[in-house]
Structures are given as C-alpha cells and as structure tokens.
Design a protein around this nucleic acid. Structure first.
Lengths: 139, 139
DNA sequence: CCTTTTGTAACCCAACGAGTTACATTTTAG
DNA sequence: CTAAAATGTAACTCGTTGGGTTACAAAAGG
C-alpha cells in the first residue's frame, strides 16, 4: 500500500487535468507541475487510460482529458488502477510446514490485512478528484 | 504501509512466543518456524524489545519472552514498533512551486493519507497476539 | 511533409530488503 | 575459571525495484 509515489503522482495528474476544465493537457505540462520527467508521467498516464479514467490522444494538438467529470472519479478508482494486485507484503519465504504457527500464519494474516486494506479503500472512496481539487485551490 | 515483510514476521514471532506460554524461545527456534536466518529474527527482536513488547536475555538458557500477556499486545503495538515514521510514500521530487496544484498537492494528500492510515490503525488495534494465536490454532 | 504528442522499450543508477558471516558480550553450567 | 549458548550488531553481498533518461515508432493535425 503506497510503497511508491505512483498513487500520489496519479492523483496529482488527475487534479491537474481537472483544473483546466476544457482543454487537453500534455504530459510535458504535467511533468512540469509534478517536477519529473514526462516519460514518468506517460507511464502512469497509460495505466489511467487503460483504467478508463482518462482519454489520451496522440498527435499534434493531442493530450489527455478526464474520461468523465472530476466528481465522478474517486481516489478508490485511482487506487484500483495503480496499486494493481499485491497491496501489502507478507512473508518472503514460505514458513515452516511442520510448525503449527508457521503452517497457519499466512492465511490468518491475509485475512487481517485484507480487512485493513478494505478500511483504506473505504476512506479513499469518500474523496473525488473534484474534492481534492477544491481543497488544493482553497489553500 | 507493509511494504516489506517485517510486520508479518514480527507478528509471526510474537505468536510463536505466545504459544510456548512459559519457556523462553530462542531466535534459532523462531527462525526455523519463519524459515529464515536467525539474524533476521534478532534484528526484529531488537526493535520489539526496545518497544517493550518482549524481554530478551543473553547467555546460555537465554531467549525471549513476552513482556506482558498476549491478550495485552495488539497488532497496533506491533505496527508502531515496526513501521517507524514514514508509513506511506508521496512525491519523490518536490512539485512545482509556481503551479497552484503543485504547490498545494502535498499537504492535501498528506491529510488524506493520514486519515487512511488512521483507519488501518483502528483495525489493527482490534486484534491482539492472543486473538491471532487462537485463529492460528483453530485452523 | 513537418511538427507535435502519445506509447513503449531499453538502459542506468540509487535505495532497500533480506540473507549471510563474523564477532563482541552476556550468562549459565560444570 | 572455562566452555558453551545465547543475544546484539556490524559489515558485506545480492537481487529487486523505483525513478530518471534517451531513443524511437506511431498517430494526427496544419
């Protein structure tokens, strides 16, 4: 969960796009706001597009826009697109099969971690890109 | 949050110690159950000891025991000891100061992430090592 | 046809996690 | 007093990963 900066950058990008209501935005412009390389932006952009959060157009006058209004994109949507499959990290090596604790620890921990992750998702679902944009502009 | 296996291993260790109610347990025994190197165990053990969750004794017949009953150690206690300071990852490079979004994104995200982390902590506080041990033995 | 932009591949490098060896220190047994 | 067993910790390796960078094919408008 959030072990790299991709989620934060993705939210930043979406908010940046949302602010310029009408026009499309280029990866160059986003890179400048985030202060990183455009390729880093485009890598994340790809995933956002595949997750149907944005629509990108190549070519001159190309760029990216939101696929739907900013108040209909939640941070949970972003989380789903970015975090992929493994949200948390458990044992690296398979614990002992001959020890009761070793044998059963993983499934038990799995259950607890999923519960924790569900709590996070619930929180994230309560914020939209619009909400974040509003908070950003209010500061 | 949980970007490495230390939290899982720490819980594993504590449950392992709790199961052997009376005796002390050696890092060697824990390493066998977790299936890793004893030094990996002792590194985590150190932090658990400094966090007053366990008491370790060097020397022959030495080992480790819980500092208090297993039903008085929550997973939140473990989280506090293991996760240290930075629980989540935001931007790697400081965003643009000249862009409204760039300038204000970090504090806004910080607030949201702290709320998410609080939700996780709340969930973790509801489980004790005793609870986990019971679940493990029931499987 | 030229320019602009996305989409991706390929590479480098720094950071980090985990495993391992080694050893000083502590403590008990004999 | 010495040997053995255990913790505590430093130091090293190695594989993985994240992020930055260059390069280039493909798309699209003027």
């Amino acid at each position: 969960m959030f072990s790299n900066s991709q989620f934060a950058v993705a939210v930043h990008m979406l908010v940046f796009i949302a602010r310029g209501q009408f026009d499309q935005v280029t990866s160059e412009e986003m890179a400048e706001s985030v202060n990183t390389n455009p390729v880093v932006i485009r890598r994340i952009l790809c995933r956002l597009a595949r997750g149907n959060l944005v629509i990108s157009q190549p070519g001159a006058l190309g760029g990216t826009k939101l696929s739907r209004p900013a108040d209909q994109i939640t941070l949970l949507d972003v989380y789903h697109v970015i975090e992929g499959c493994e949200a948390y990290c458990l044992h690296k090596s398979q614990p002992s099969e001959t020890c009761v604790v070793g044998r059963n620890m993983l499934p038990v921990l799995e259950g607890i971690m999923q519960e924790a992750e569900a709590a996070v998702k619930e929180k994230l679902s309560r914020y939209t890109i619009e909400d974040v944009l509003r908070q950003v502009l209010k500061l």
